[in-house]
Nucleic acid binder design. Structure first.
Length: 501
RNA sequence: GGUCCUGUGGCCGAGUGGCUAGGCAGAGCUCUGCAAAAGCUUCUACAGCGGUUCGAAUCCGCUCGGGACCUCCA
């Protein structure tokens, strides 16, 4: 049983084979830190965090590189060269790097909230200007780029002509044919510098108002849109690495250009497997700046966006994302998030309860059918993950297992129906998948046990009240706690547990 | 206009030629002082029209609807 992933490059599910097992190199396009990340951005980072975790679980030694784009890119090509970061910096009266630092910090804060593991290397574009310039020089030397007025452009047509012969045409990833595109490319101003509309910038001459600028062989300027990823992936992962990930909207032109640049320099397609996650939509529309429908992560966690009916815990969002397949769109709504919130709580409580049970491994199953069913549901975790990381199916199985766990808890299923060995396996596999691979964590806030002590005291007082049929007191405790977000649950065996919202 | 994806029950979502997805919501029952929680049972599905097939939600065609990319974008 081996891992299969959908490779955008071949448009097929393929068996994953590492180039240099057990080592795996994975590059994922990170954020542009000119603003705060929004819900849509959360998806690739959570998706590839799970990929990272799963690969490690499979025994690979993964070098996970995720860049930070902190060198400004154009708002719009052509018009007065406006650098996104420097423009905003002027508005906010901040130094560009101060702004970049602020949003980088916010981004890291959100990643930590989501319990995403930090990547092995998180290189910045501004920290790799030298590498980018070197790469551009090489592309010029090889004849695939030209200089014009202090800017450097990639010659797409020449590349396409030469590399089509080698079976690597420009557009191989996105399925575009260059000839079709030339006509369909938008008519932009100030295109005279380019020989062809489809050419893209490797280096841009910086106009005087541009704050972020570096010295280069072509004068003062800043790197083009795509070169940083080629330069940094080559530097840290080599000329050919295993996985390249990112959002589907980056497939063209970003990844296509990346392939072209790297292929000229290294004579091979940079990554073997290209994985693309789909978009998060809101009312069926992609969440994005241009649609003016973004929910920033801080707004999501605090419930401060007008669309939001409440705040959503980062784990709710993580769970929500894992409940769908990464290649499908996922539609945001309050109802959907609220459903995820409840579902996650149910799953977690069953998981937590089982984890606390002392299991006698010597017990044999009195209900072979039930035992077998549980074993099968557990066994399918790997199977589903290996089938292009189907986290949704794994979660579905977990819910079926939760029913079994709750039935044991409520004694609807006999304690010895399932063997000790199976229950131990269940404990172990749930922990592995819920915590280690899916990266979910308990919502309970850490405290030093004082809160628990207080609650246990209240539970005792309520119990005594109930015994003398003083329901006014017992209900008061229950209801007051409920309004504070602490829910008491009377268990079958007379015990009382609680959950905190 | 070009390239491509998609249409599943009240909502979110798996699935993909014959076998229950799952979650949330709704209904009934069990438990309970009453609730909640939990368990059990249950109701709404595969856009429409044709075709292929013993059999299609699943394959093919058409129609209608939604969306993405072609420009920064996760």
């Amino acid at each position: 049983m081996s891992l299969k992933v959908y490779n955008s490059l071949t448009r097929k599910k393929e068996v994953f084979e590492a180039i240099n097992a057990p080592y795996v190199g994975m590059y994922v396009c990170g954020p542009t830190v000119s603003g705060e990340s929004h819900l849509g951005h959360a998806r690739p980072f959570i998706t590839f965090d799970v990929v990272y975790r799963y690969l490690m679980h499979l025994g690979y030694k993964v070098r996970y590189v995720r860049n930070i784009t902190d060198a400004g890119h154009f708002e719009e090509e052509g018009r007065e060269a406006e650098d996104k970061i420097s423009t905003k910096a002027i508005l906010e009266k901040l130094e560009p790097m101060e702004l970049v630092q602020k949003y980088t910090n916010l981004y890291h804060w959100a990643m930590a909230k989501f319990n995403n593991l930090p990547p092995s290397i998180e290189p910045t574009a501004t920290g790799h200007i030298v590498e980018q310039i070197e790469m551009i020089k090489k592309i010029i030397t090889d004849g695939y780029a030209y200089e014009a007025n202090g800017s450097v452009y990639f010659n797409v047509e020449k590349y396409n002509t030469d590399f089509s012969k080698k079976g690597m045409p420009y557009g191989m990833l996105s399925g575009r044919v260059l000839d079709d595109q030339i006509d369909s490319t938008r008519d932009l101003d100030n295109q005279e510098e380019k020989r062809n509309k489809s050419d893209f910038a490797l280096w841009k001459n910086a106009p005087p108002e541009h704050i972020m600028r570096w010295q280069s062989p072509w004068g003062e300027g800043f790197p083009g849109w795509h070169i940083e990823c080629s330069a940094m992936s080559t530097k840290y992962l080599g000329e050919e690495f295993d996985i390249h990930g990112g959002g589907m909207d980056l497939q063209f032109p970003h990844h296509e250009c990346e392939i072209a640049q790297s292929t000229v320099c290294n004579h091979k397609t940079p990554a073997r497997y290209w994985l693309h996650n789909n978009m998060i939509t809101i009312n069926g529309k992609k969440m994005g700046k241009s649609y003016n429908n973004v929910i920033k992560l801080s707004e999501l966690f605090e419930g401060t966006h007008p669309i939001l009916e409440q705040a959503y815990h980062p784990m709710t969002v993580r769970f929500f994302i894992l409940q769908s397949h990464y290649r499908g769109t996922l539609d945001f709504s309050n109802e959907a998030l609220q459903a995820s919130e409840k579902a996650l709580r149910r799953l977690w409580e069953a998981y937590e309860w089982l984890g606390k049970q002392e299991i006698n491994a010597a017990v044999t199953a009195s209900d072979k059918v039930q035992d077998e069913k549980v074993r099968q549901l557990i066994g399918e975790f790997d199977e589903f993950m290996n089938d292009d990381l189907n986290t949704a199916k794994v979660l579905a199985n977990m819910f079926e297992l939760s029913s079994v766990i709750n039935s044991i808890k409520d004694k609807h299923i006999k304690a010895d129906a399932i063997s000790g060995a199976t229950l131990q396996l269940l404990q172990q596999q749930l922990k592995l998948y819920i915590e280690d691979i899916f990266g979910l964590t308990g919502e309970r806030t850490a405290d030093d046990g004082k809160l628990d002590g207080v609650l246990q005291l209240l539970i005792d007082i309520r119990k005594e009240a109930k015994q003398r049929k003083d329901f006014v007191t017992s209900d008061k405790i229950r209801n007051e706690l409920a309004s504070l977000g602490v829910q008491l649950k009377d268990e079958k065996d007379g015990g009382v547990s609680y959950s905190i919202q």
